[in-house]
Design a protein around this nucleic acid. Structure first.
Lengths: 141, 141
DNA sequence: GTAAATCTTGACACCGGTGTCAGGTTCAAG
DNA sequence: CTTGAACCTGACACCGGTGTCAAGATTTAC
């Protein structure tokens, strides 16, 4: 598929996809005219890259991790060096702390939302559009 | 307490504390000479601000949330407007999605770490410094 | 063969919290 | 007093992934 389709399927801008390639995170073959051509696996890879970015990892580190993953790109899946493993452990711990923080923040928001919801709902005005205790939460660990 | 102490106790730079004040997130009385003076509650407030920043909220929105919280600053604790509640719900959902992402990223890292740990540990070289399945994870929800 | 859609590279700019430096003032202890 | 630590305001810069525009080449369909 070409870059436009990949962009649509991953909801990631073409700009970013080209950036990923320049950073060595994403590979593509080229048509005779120089247009990028991606295989089906690219979709999952882009999604993964996005998640790792969202986790606060820098492109350089992501570039080190990707070859160490299984079934990401058919590659024989390298093994992380002890040095890299140490860094990854640090990152993982940082992410765990971040998750804990996010949970706290979410609870703070829920608190404010709930306190407002009560006020809005009780005066029997069916204006309570967004109220209610829909505290959906992703399962953790 | 003065800004230096608050900075130490919260592990937040003086620069940031002044920035928070300029954004209206943090208040302080002033000495005759103009030095900032904080009360004890400031510590918790700063920590909270940091968590909300880590959650990706912008200072403006944090400024709207803070007055709606209970026992944050003795203030009578305002109630969020329906408009704000809507925005907060959006934020909360975004944060929930972010948490889910982070968990996935963490698992990816754990995968890479584990695969390397096996290689390092099995060849009975006690070099396995950071290895082992210490998959500590914060409790969620 | 031609037009419209898609793609190419390159460059400039943004965001927004934070680091840091400069030049000057205030505080607290000797 | 005087001196050193702590604080003040203001300004410049960064980071790094992303938006966007420009000028041109390629693809695809008619």
């Amino acid at each position: 598929m070409r870059i436009g389709e990949l962009a649509k399927r991953t909801a990631v801008s073409e700009r970013s996809l080209r950036y990923y390639e320049k950073q060595g995170l994403l590979v593509s073959t080229r048509t005779t005219g120089g247009h990028r051509d991606y295989n089906e696996r690219a979709v999952d890879r882009v999604v993964l890259i996005q998640e790792l970015f969202a986790a606060g990892l820098h492109s350089k580190k992501i570039g080190q991790i990707l070859p160490c993953m299984r079934d990401t790109d058919g590659a024989p899946s390298e093994i992380a060096t002890p040095r890299l493993v140490g860094e990854l452990v640090t990152e993982r711990d940082r992410i765990n702390g971040l998750i804990a923080d996010l949970i706290r923040s979410r609870d703070v928001l829920n608190d404010v939302i709930d306190r407002a919801a009560v006020v809005i709902e009780i005066p029997d005005s069916p204006l309570a559009v967004t109220a209610g205790s829909h505290h959906s939460a992703p399962a953790a660990t």
